[in-house]
Design a protein around this nucleic acid. Structure first.
Length: 596
RNA sequence: GCGCUCGUAGCUCAGCUGGAUAGAGCAUCGGAUUUCGAUUCCGAGGGUCGGAGGUUCGAAUCCUUCCGAGCGCGCCA
């Protein structure tokens, strides 16, 4: 289990106190041994009037403690009332224990934010995790459809890293199937074209895009007319390798435009290299476990398969691990199915030390999850776990109208076109401002708007506004307020934070205090979108407080005749700025000091 | 036909893995605003959480079953 960093964060701290109270009570009341406290949680109540935090301890423990929830709640409450951090304890409803903390607790929470700075909410000591994402076929530039999985995977990896995991970002290159041979043939045409031949229209079934022209030109330059004299079987490996290399370079460029970088690029072809055939090895391994057999499959029930041929074939016993049917490993032409090499690939991940694997796939691969999880179970004897995150379709719009067309490829919009038009921040944030398994509307016009309707702008503006306040404070009250973030945080760390007492201010501090908890939950659920929503809420409260200062001058951040209060308020602003910057960094979105 | 995902305000979506009177934004209506440079803020109306059962102290959340949408269903990746 991950360890929380040096200081306990407020929610974890209070949870520990509740646990302690329960244990003390357990000892005093001779409860049965080995009671499970893990279901006891401390969370913010839905209704703020109930207090700052609520715990379900009494309701969860009632059965085992053989007591009525309300009675038990009273006993636990009695012990919590003695706690120095807690101002008020109430028992409500079916047995909730509502806690109201002393104001000093919130000041202390802000002090924690400032002390830890960029590390606030960070955890260390987590497990090794492999996150595989993008893995687009190396047959052309990336299109918008790839965008979402790319951004999602990248943000999830960052999130898990922040949550203490040892994360490897991986890209699986599908460079072994039939489609890369098609790529090679398409590139060969462009090669002939580069040598001055008239190739006419690109035949049906080959890739028509202009992006293969540079490949043809490069081949012409390197090989001259040498390849023309060869048979396809002879030139194909050379052309294929060149085309894949250039496509991968292009994909890496596209990813860089979104600020995405992988640690490992894993080649499918490397699995079946002669002399080192991992796929054969894996099949043998499964055979020895009795998970593979020769058999027949019933024809698929859905759309009729025209050339269906009932044949004896090599099957993986996926049904033994929760799948619906057993799955073929070898095609009728004798080559491996994609699934076969994918089994070998995931086994390889496990063998490299990743018991935890996460794959990010597009929605059209949903039907593939069960068999892959079955395969992981089988090859790792249940020790490996694969979580597959499906990212749903992105509907690209402009002012509500669907966008099709592309200047470059003829039939799809490239990732690059979208990033060039709206910028990487807008793309990244919007892709994360939705649950991954929900369809997403991406409106090119809307994400450029500077309004509350555009969450990217709204959150970034929150960060910029914080800095704007620092600039004003520097001009009006504190010429010494450091520009450097680290120095400024240290400088503000010595503020009289107990001066922050207005309910609106305390609300903001509570929001900051809950950040580590939000991160922890988002990481555990593999759901980076929760951070995007949290940031939006935080920015919203910050903007609201700023605007309140317009009507109520005593709530302004800068109070010219009260340097002590101003400094405390600036410390609060710094807390907001720090957390906004931290959350945006996890999402891979810039936190600007000013908007332009 | 089967499997997976989904169904929450007029629209777009959250809902912290079972908690209290289900929340935001947009849109609508009503207010505030020559600010600490910012398209910002406050308030109101709006709900059978697709329908029906079930599990328990308690269900939008879990189970069953219908209805509806999307995706998938050897030898594509």
């Amino acid at each position: 289990m991950p360890q929380t960093s040096s200081s306990l964060h407020l929610f974890a701290d209070v949870l520990a106190r509740v646990h302690a109270a329960c244990r003390a009570l357990a000892a005093a009341s001779s409860w049965p041994e080995g009671i499970d406290f893990s279901r006891v949680v401390v969370e913010p109540p839905r209704d703020a009037s109930h207090g700052d935090m609520a715990t379900n301890a009494a309701m969860v423990l009632a059965k085992e403690a053989k007591a009525k929830p309300r009675d038990l709640a009273e006993q636990i409450a009695e012990r919590l009332r003695a706690d120095a951090l807690i101002a008020k304890v109430d028992v409500a409803g079916p047995g909730f224990i509502n806690l109201t903390l002393k104001p000093a607790a919130w000041a202390e929470a802000l002090r924690t934010v400032l002390r830890e700075g960029p590390a606030y909410g960070r955890v260390s000591g987590g497990s090794k995790v492999n996150v595989e994402y993008v893995s687009a076929n190396p047959t052309g530039p990336m299109h918008v459809g790839h965008c979402r999985g790319a951004v999602f995977g990248d943000a999830l990896a960052s999130l898990l890293q922040f949550a203490g995991h040892d994360v490897t970002r991986e890209y699986y290159i599908n460079d072994a199937g039939a489609q890369v041979d098609v790529l090679a043939r398409s590139a060969f045409l462009r090669y002939r074209e580069a040598l001055g031949q008239d190739i006419g229209a690109i035949p049906e079934g080959l890739y028509p895009g202009d992006y293969l022209k540079p490949v043809g030109e490069a081949l012409a330059k390197e090989q001259g007319e040498k390849l023309l004299a060869m048979s396809e079987a002879e030139w194909l490996p050379t052309v294929r390798a060149k085309a894949i290399a250039m496509m991968m370079a292009e994909i890496k460029d596209d990813l860089a435009a979104l600020n995405i970088r992988h640690d490992v690029f894993f080649s499918e072809r490397s699995l079946i290299e002669t002399g080192n055939n991992k796929v054969a090895e894996t099949i043998d391994f499964l055979k020895s476990k009795g998970d593979i057999y020769e058999g027949r499959l019933p024809p698929p029930k859905g759309a009729p398969v025209e050339d269906w041929e009932d044949r004896e074939q090599l099957l993986f016993k996926a049904t033994a691990y929760g799948d619906d049917v057993d799955r073929p490993l070898i095609k009728s032409d004798g080559s491996y199915t994609y699934f076969a090499s994918d089994i070998a690939y995931h086994k390889n991940k496990f063998d490299r030390g990743f018991a935890e694997m996460i794959d990010v796939w597009g929605a059209d691969h949903g039907g593939y999850i069960k068999r892959m999880q079955a395969a992981v179970k089988a090859t790792t004897s249940g020790k490996g776990a694969l979580d597959v995150k499906i990212v749903q379709l992105v509907k690209l719009l402009r002012n509500g109208e669907p966008v099709k067309m592309s200047k470059r490829s003829g039939d799809f919009v490239t990732l690059r076109e979208v990033v060039d038009e709206v910028g990487q921040d807008a793309v990244r944030f919007m892709m994360l401002y939705r649950k991954n398994d929900a369809v997403l509307d991406f409106d090119l016009a809307k994400v450029m708007e500077q309004s509350r309707d555009n969450p990217v702008f709204y959150v970034q503006y929150g960060h910029a506004r914080g800095h704007s306040i620092f600039r004003n404070a520097r001009a009006e009250v504190f010429p010494d307020l450091p520009e450097d973030a680290g120095k400024r945080i240290a400088w503000l760390g010595e503020s009289a934070l107990e001066r922050l007492s207005d309910p609106v201010e305390l609300e903001l501090l509570k929001r900051l205090a809950i950040y580590p908890r939000t991160l922890e939950a988002a990481a555990a659920a593999h759901e980076p979108h929760r951070i995007a929503f949290y940031l939006y809420d935080l920015a919203s409260e910050f903007h609201a407080l700023w605007t309140k200062g317009r009507d109520l001058p005593y709530l302004r951040f800068i109070i010219n005749n009260d340097a002590v209060l101003t400094k405390a308020r600036l410390a609060m602003v710094q807390g907001v700025v720090s957390v906004l910057a931290s959350g945006l960094a996890i999402l891979g979105v810039h936190a600007p000091d000013e908007m332009r």
